Amino acid sequence: MAYNLLKGKRGIITGALDENSIAWKVAEKAHEEGATFVLTNAPIAMRMGEIKVLAEKTGSEIIPADATNVDDLTNLFTKSQEVLGGKIDFVLHSIGMSVNIRKKIPYTESNYDYFMKGIDVSAMSLHKMLSVARKLDAINEWGSVVALTYMAAQRTYPFYTDMADIKAMLESIARSFGYHYGVEKKVRINTVSQSPTKTTAGSGIKGFGDFFDFANAIAPLGNADAESCANYCVTLFSDLTKMVTMQNLFHDGGYSSTGISMDVMERLGVEEQS
């Protein structure tokens, strides 16, 4: 059921690779809620994905951009305003990549060139996007920027390796830039810390399947899926959350607030104490 939460709003959605990705679901939901937007991804990711299908489904134009390249981002924000007919109201940052994880390099033996590449792609890209948008005055007052993150930024998950540090930097950028953009233009910037989600990217992490089941057993509501995350992002794009900024918002079925569950203790053979 749609509520026209984004009627008349214009946006930029990054990172939609295939129908399993959260960004793909966000695009579908934003379209249902009345938004118009452009889709963007790095050229290499676009060749691997199915973004053209999503563009046709939502009536959107695709503007390729390397999120680490300021010139590409300048073109993205400039052309998006031309295509959409005005300033931008919302941006989804759904960009993450770790070469160390792809190459199965342990955290304690991280390749630092790969590490820096991950920082540039997955965290610094948010700063570059916001900096370009600010210089171009491309985002309307009370606009909303949402970046996707994960709780490994706060707690240790050994299998998440250097992405944990990178996500911590992403969240810090959202807070720091959120202050300046909020004071100047009332633009709000938040991160959404999502449950383990069965996406193409997430499933590539070693041990993901076991951890997905563990988190699902811990969270009182179970893991939040990609579609429910998309719904949450849409509320953050809407005018209903105009005073929410500089926050890291957990969307994880209560996992982040739960120490242990009876389900997990039973699996471990722990008897309940009276």
Score class of each variant (00 low, 15 high):
I95R: 02
K128Y: 11
V121Y: 03
S110G: 12
V121S: 07
L126Q: 06
K104W: 08
R134P: 00
I63H: 01
T74Y: 03
M129H: 01
L130A: 13
R102V: 12
H127P: 04
N100I: 07
F90N: 11
K87G: 11
V132C: 05
R102S: 14
N100C: 04
L76M: 07
G118I: 02
R134T: 06
R134K: 15
D66W: 06
K103V: 08
V99N: 11
S131M: 10
M129P: 03
E109Y: 05
R102A: 13
K79G: 00
K104Q: 14
A123W: 01
S60W: 02
I62C: 12
K57R: 14
A65S: 12
I119S: 05
M97V: 08
M129F: 04
F90D: 11
S80Y: 05
I101T: 14
A65Y: 08
V83N: 08
S122M: 06
Y107G: 13
K135E: 13
M124A: 11
E61C: 06
D113R: 10
M129K: 03
K103E: 15
T74D: 09
T68W: 03
H127F: 14
Y112F: 15
R134H: 12
I95N: 09
Y112W: 15
E82P: 02
S80V: 02
T78L: 01
N69I: 01
K117T: 15
A133F: 12
S94P: 06
Y112T: 12
F115P: 09
